[in-house]
Computed example of a mutant assay.
Amino acid sequence: MNLKRITAVVGAFTLITSLFIAGCGSNTTNNDKVWRVGTDATYAPFGFKEKNTGKLDGFDIDIITAIAKEEGAEVDIQNLNFDALLPALQSNTLDIAISDMTISEERAKSVDFSNPYYIAGSGLVVNTDNTNITSFKDLEGKRIGVSIGSTGAEIAGKIPNADVRQFNLIIDAFLELQNRGVDVVINDTPVNEFYVANKGRGIAKVVGEDYDAAPLGIAVKKGNTELLDKINSGLAKIKENGKYREIYKKWFGKEPPVEQ
């Protein structure tokens, strides 16, 4: 093989290698633009599985999808139990968690939260024939159903002599209420109202005033400021361009509250 032939072969090999490396770099860039999002799809209307297709849908799904679009990213949404979401962030299994999650001091010790995207109070659900429970003042000594790791669980833990029963899924708590295994379920009011208007129609009712309303946030791993900044940026954009209002009206049937 002469020198020219050797030079040509080496040049071709170098070009192929360069293209391969460039291609690998391109794939890495694309992967960086896919946000791994976790949600618990049992908190309708925030997140749920469509009955016929099994597709994830809901307010939270639409919100994080719209935010990602504004920031030039896509979302890969995974369905996990609520109490598994924060550990999944900490172990880098997820990038983001959005699931009707109240911003609390305790949770903020392990994850960072976005600016609030919804304000939700906690309320009570009882069977339609229950006349003994009309407010949080009536819960002492009662059997209370909550989902593990939820704000409802935190509230129930403060009620004197209560028999608190925790469930992996909030729908299981509602089912236990229907079966008379608990007297009341404590959960976020929008989820309660959706349940009573749909699967719980004629079976359960919402009673009492909301427990202290609190903001919901989108969680990321502690210290992931780059992603958090993108989420806050995207959230501000969809609030400004009207997309947030559109999504809010779609799922709650009313205008979003005016921000102070």
Results as ranks from 00 to 15, higher is better:
K51P: 12
S91P: 10
T93L: 02
A84V: 00
A66N: 01
L56W: 07
A88I: 11
A66H: 00
T93I: 02
D62C: 01
Q78I: 06
E70N: 12
I63R: 01
K55I: 07
T93H: 02
E70I: 14
F82I: 10
D62H: 02
T53Y: 02
E71L: 02
L56I: 07
G72N: 12
G47S: 07
F59R: 07
T65H: 00
F59S: 06
F82D: 11
T53R: 03
G58N: 08
Q78S: 14
K49R: 07
N52E: 10
Q90Y: 14
I77E: 08
A84H: 00
I63P: 01
D62M: 01
N92R: 07
L85D: 06
I77H: 10
F46D: 10
G58Q: 07
N81P: 09
A88P: 05
E50G: 12
G58P: 13
A88D: 10
N81W: 04
A88Q: 04
G54Q: 05
A68K: 05
D95L: 04
E74W: 05
L80E: 03
D95G: 11
L56S: 07
E74C: 11
F59Q: 08
D60W: 03
A66Q: 01
E50H: 15
Q78M: 12
A66K: 00
I64E: 13
S91A: 13
A73Y: 03
A84C: 00
V75P: 08
E74A: 05
D62I: 00
L80F: 05
E71D: 05
G58W: 13
I67Y: 15
A68N: 03
L94I: 06
A84S: 00
D83T: 14
F48Y: 14
G58L: 07
K55R: 03
T65I: 00
P87E: 07
E74S: 09
L94F: 09
I77D: 13
T93K: 02
D60P: 05
E71N: 11
I64T: 09
N79A: 08
T53F: 06
D57V: 12
V75G: 14
A66L: 01
G47F: 14
G47M: 10
L94Y: 11
L85R: 08
F48K: 15
P87S: 12
N52G: 15
V75I: 14
F48D: 13
T65F: 01
E71R: 15
E74T: 15
D76I: 03
Q90S: 07
K49N: 11
A66S: 01
F48C: 12
G72W: 13
I96T: 08
I63A: 01
A73L: 04
V75M: 07
L86Q: 11
I67L: 14
D95K: 07
A66V: 00
N79P: 06
F82G: 08
G54P: 03
P87T: 09
T93N: 04
I96P: 13
L86G: 12
D83P: 05
V75D: 06
G72R: 15
L89W: 10
T65E: 00
I67N: 12
Q90L: 15
S91T: 12
L86W: 15
N52S: 09
G58S: 09
G58F: 13
I61R: 01
K49W: 15
F59C: 13
E71W: 05
L86P: 14
L56C: 04
D95C: 03
I96S: 10
A84L: 00
D95V: 06
